[in-house]
Amino acid sequence: MRKSPVWNPHQYNKYAAERGRPFMDLLAQVHLEDSTGGSDGLLVVDLGCGPGNLTASLVERWPGARVVGVDSSPQMIEAAQELAGERLSFEVGDVREWSAAPESVDVIVTNATLHWIPEQLELLPGFVRALKPGGWLAIQIPGNGDAPSHAILRELAHTEPYAEYAAEQAFRAEVPSPADYVAALTAEGCTVDAWETTYSHLLQGDNAVLEWVKGTGARPVLQSLPDELRAQFEAEYGARLNEAYPQQEFGTLLPFRRIFAVAQKGN
Rank of each mutant, 00 (worst) to 15 (best):
R258P: 06
E122I: 05
G64R: 10
L156M: 14
E91H: 02
A263R: 08
S39R: 08
Y15K: 06
L123Q: 06
H201L: 14
R129E: 10
Y199I: 07
N144G: 11
N242D: 15
Y199R: 11
V92T: 09
E78W: 02
L241H: 14
K14F: 06
Q120N: 14
E168R: 15
I139D: 02
A100P: 05
R230P: 04
P102T: 07
G266C: 04
R154E: 08
E78F: 01
V105W: 00
P133H: 08
A167Y: 12
G85F: 08
A179K: 14
F23W: 07
E97S: 12
N111H: 13
F256T: 09
E236G: 10
R172L: 13
V109N: 02
Q29C: 13
E82K: 05
V192H: 09
T198Q: 15
G85D: 11
P161W: 11
G215W: 04
E33A: 13
L114Q: 00
P22K: 13
T197E: 12
A173F: 10
L210C: 05
A173E: 10
P220A: 02
C190H: 00
A167W: 09
Q169Y: 00
F127R: 03
R257H: 14
M24S: 14
G48M: 06
L114Y: 01
E236H: 12
W136H: 06
G85V: 07
F127K: 03
D227E: 15
W62R: 00
D34S: 14
F127W: 11
Q232S: 15
A167R: 15
E97P: 00
Q204A: 14
N13I: 01
F233G: 10
R257L: 12
G215C: 07
M76N: 02
R66N: 10
F260K: 12
N111G: 04
R219W: 02
W212I: 08
Y162R: 05
A112P: 01
R87G: 01
S4Q: 14
D106E: 09
L131D: 05
A235K: 15
W136G: 02
V67C: 03
A147H: 14
A184Q: 07
G20Y: 08
V109I: 07
V67Q: 03
Y181A: 03
R219E: 04
T55C: 00
R257T: 14
R61N: 02
N53M: 07
L83H: 02
W195Y: 08
E155G: 11
D34P: 05
H201I: 04
D71R: 00
G48R: 04
S72A: 15
H150T: 06
G93F: 01
S224W: 03
Q264V: 09
P133L: 07
A130Y: 04
N207Q: 14
L114V: 01
S224V: 04
T186P: 05
T197R: 15
L222Q: 05
P51E: 09
M1Y: 11
P226W: 12
E236I: 08
A167I: 13
R87T: 04
D94P: 02
P226R: 13
L253S: 14
